[in-house]
Design a protein around this nucleic acid. Sequence first.
DNA 1: TAAAAATATGCATATTCACGCAAAATTTAG
DNA 2: CTAAATTTTGCGTGAATATGCATATTTTTA
Lengths: 250, 250
Amino acid sequence: MLKEERHKIILREVNLHNKVLTNDLSELLEVSEDTIRRDLNELDELEMILKVHGGAMSKTFHYPFNGQNRVYALEAKKTIAQKAIALFKKDMLILVEGGTTIMEISKQIPADLHATVFTVCPQVAISLAEHENLEVITIGGRLSKNSNIHTGASVINELAAIKTDLCIIGTNGISVENGLTDSDWEVVQVIKAMIRSAKKTAVVCIAEKFDSVQKIKIADIKDVDYVITELDPDSPVLDVYRREGKPGLL
Amino acid sequence: MLKEERHKIILREVNLHNKVLTNDLSELLEVSEDTIRRDLNELDELEMILKVHGGAMSKTFHYPFNGQNRVYALEAKKTIAQKAIALFKKDMLILVEGGTTIMEISKQIPADLHATVFTVCPQVAISLAEHENLEVITIGGRLSKNSNIHTGASVINELAAIKTDLCIIGTNGISVENGLTDSDWEVVQVIKAMIRSAKKTAVVCIAEKFDSVQKIKIADIKDVDYVITELDPDSPVLDVYRREGKPGLL
DNA sequence: TAAAAATATGCATATTCACGCAAAATTTAG
DNA sequence: CTAAATTTTGCGTGAATATGCATATTTTTA
C-alpha cells in the first residue's frame, strides 16, 4: 500500500469519526504504529489533522469559532485577565460568568493550571476546553440571546447546589454609590446566585465603566472581595473605592 | 511499443484504479521500471497524474479536501440537514446532540420556525442562538474535550426530567447487525439518555459510515424512528435497513 | 508518585529512485 | 535505401525513501 493511500484513509477516518487512535489505524492499515505516527505527523504538518497524544482529531470540529471579532479595549482586558488569573490556585473551584473580559481570561489561563472551572456561558466553556488540565463544567439552562449566558430558574437551582472558591463576574455598571448594576433582570438573578455560591467574588471591569449606573442592582461594592481593573492599584481614580475599605483592588 | 501508447495505458490504469505501482506497470507493459519511472515523471510534469514514492495516484482522487477548515462531506451534510429540518414542526420540543452534521442542521433551521431546542453541545447552542424564534436550552455538565458535548451524571439526570418530541443524534458507527455504536462510553450514556427522553428519535449519518462498527453499543436500528442520510430514500443501499422494517428512511 | 502507555530517536533493512552511460530503436536527411 | 542524428531504453551504482525494531524519553493514568 502506498503511503498516500494510507494518508487518504487516515483523513477519511479522522473526518468520519472526529478522532482516531494510533492503535486502531495500525490494525486497520496493517502497518506498525511507528508508521502511523509518522503519517499523522506529516498530515499534522500539512495542517490537515490535529495530532494529539494517542492519535489524531479533526480540525473542523475542534476550532469552529476562529472568526477574529474585534474586542473593544482588548489591551485593557488582557491586563485585567492577567491580574484575575493571579488569583487562581491549583485545584481551585472557579466559577466564571460570560463576556469578552472573561473570554480573555479563559484564553490566558496557563496551560499547566490544574483546576475545575464552572461557567454559565457556552463560548467560555469552549474556550476553557482548550486547556487540557482544566475540568470544565457548564451550568446549563435557557440561553439568553442578549448576554449569551444561561439564565432561568434551573441555573439558580444548580448554582445553589455548589460552593466554589472564587467567582469572577463582569458588570455593566459600577459606582461607589450604587454598587454593581445591570439592565437585564435574568442576568442579574444569575450573577446574584453566582456570588452566593462562591466564597470570594472578583468583579472585572474596565475603568471606563466607572460611575455608570444601570437599572437593576446586583450587589454593593462591599459585597465583592476584589475589584479588578486595568489601572494601577494605587491610581487616584480608585481612591473612592479604597475608602469603601472592603474590596481588594488589583 | 511506443512511448505515447504506454502513456495512454498508464493514464487509463491510474484513472481506473486511482493508483498504480511502478512494479505492476513494468510487468504489464514489459519495460523496465526505469522506463516506467520516466513515464510517470513526464506525466507528473504535465500534471496528468500525481507521482508518489512507489508509483502514482490520480490527481482528483488524492486530497479531496484541501481547505483546512472545511467540513468533510459538507454537501452531503447539507442535504441531510434539509431532510432533518423537514421533521421540525411549530412549537415542537427538539433535542439535539453535537457534531458537524448537527451544526449544519442548526445553521439551516428556518428563521421563522418557533420552537424549543435542547442541546448538550455548547457549539450547537451558540449556533442555535442566532435564531430569534428559537428558545435554546443547554443541558449543562462536564464538558468532554474529545466530543465537545456535556457528559456525566448531571446530564443524565437532567435528560431524565424532560420529554421532547424529537431527538436528533449523530453516530460514529452504524450497521444493520450492530446498530448504532460509538467509542466513547460517556458519550454513549448521554445519547442513550437522549433517546429515552424523546418520543421519536432520528439518527443523521452520511452513507459513508454504513457498516462501520465502534466498540460500544448505543441502540439497535429498530430503536430509532428515522435514519436520515444524503441518499435517495429508495436507494438500494438502504434495502438492508428497509428490511429492518421499523425506521423511516429519509 | 510509580506504573503503564505513547512517543521520539537512532539504526538496520529493503525498496525505490536518479544519474550516467552505452546499446538499441526510431527518426531524419541525403 | 542507407547512414547519421536523435531519441529511447536498460543497467549499474550510489543516494533517497519507507518501514520496523530496539531503546530512551515523554506523557498519561491510577
